[in-house]
Design a binder for these strands. Structure first.
Length: 274
DNA sequence: CACGAGACCTGTTCGC
DNA sequence: TGCGAACAGGTCTCGT
């Protein structure tokens, strides 16, 4: 499910509350139930369960696609990967299918980590830095300017699609927002990064920022079985629109596999490199 | 450094 | 209807 806008939306819900449930800050974790051991990346399941008890949630934030939950002594990092979801619910509610980790809180609530495909991971660490160390810049930060992006692109000979998905290059884009941004910028996914002109890099920069901000404004995209109430999927221009007309020029949207990922683009707005 | 294949998982949709 | 293949918002590791 989640790319930067979806994770930002979930962080916001966990911070401020959602659907009548309270936010996490101020809640004490009473106990932990690990239902799928591999969901815990670090430390061991036993140590995770022991150490997290009694810690109080201080703050909830986001870095790239990670949720960063600051506790009394440790930081709880959560990566939702493909199908993960985090929600606060009242104790006593029937447990959902695919709950992998449940943190029981004070005040009659629990935090459930639900993850159908079991790809998601949690880390409990005194210092979150090592886990986050390899990430590239935040695309919505003030430091990430068009000039900075141009410089970054010039240093790589890769195709745009796989490069933009590489979290050590730029942190937060996934398959949806990459396809949408490339369409918005009028750039073919197979274009080579180092060959973009400064004007093209500027268009790509603006497109990335706009698409991510729109995603956040729409509370992310909700497709398939993971429901978050987001609406961004209703504004897709190319993603999952194979065979449908491009909203800009009417040409039929094509799908092809680039870097092992389904890739959607308009062959007219995004001319293939010669 | 860049790229592709395979792994990790479950569930839904598509084609015959 | 049944059944296998393809596909899904992500990342990691390994081989070339």
């Amino acid at each position: 499910m989640p790319e930067l806008p979806e994770v930002e939306t979930i962080a916001h819900y966990l911070r401020d509350g959602n659907l009548g449930q309270p936010g996490l800050p101020g809640r004490t974790i009473r106990s932990a139930e690990v239902l799928w051991a591999r969901s815990i990346a670090e430390p061991t399941v036993d140590e995770f369960s022991r150490r997290i008890c009694g810690q109080v949630v201080q703050q909830v934030g986001r870095r790239a696609k990670y949720l960063v939950i600051q506790l009394t002594a440790d930081t709880l990092l959560v990566h939702l990967r493909m199908s993960g979801d985090l929600r606060v619910e009242p104790e006593g509610t029937a447990a959902a299918a695919h709950d992998r980790v449940v943190l029981h809180l004070d005040g009659g609530h629990r935090l459930a980590f639900n993850d159908t495909r079991k790809f998601g991971r949690m880390w409990l660490a005194a210092d979150p830095q090592p886990v986050l160390a390899a990430l590239g810049p935040e695309p919505l930060s003030a430091e990430f300017t068009a000039d900075v992006l141009y410089g970054m692109l010039r240093a790589h000979s890769r195709q745009l699609k796989p490069l933009l998905l590489d979290q050590s290059f730029l942190a937060g884009l996934g398959n949806i927002y990459t396809d949408e941004a490339l369409h918005e910028a009028g750039l073919h996914p197979n274009r080579l990064a180092a060959q973009l002109s400064p004007a093209e890099a500027g268009r790509l920069w603006a497109a990335i920022r706009r698409v991510l901000n729109e995603g956040i404004r729409h509370h992310g995209a909700s497709i398939d079985w993971v429901y978050r109430g987001g609406e961004f999927q209703n504004t897709f221009r190319v993603y999952q629109r194979t065979g449908l007309p491009c909203p800009v020029c009417g040409t039929v949207i094509e799908r092809r596999v680039v870097g092992q990922r389904g890739t959607h683009f308009c062959p007219r707005c995004q001319p293939e490199p010669g």
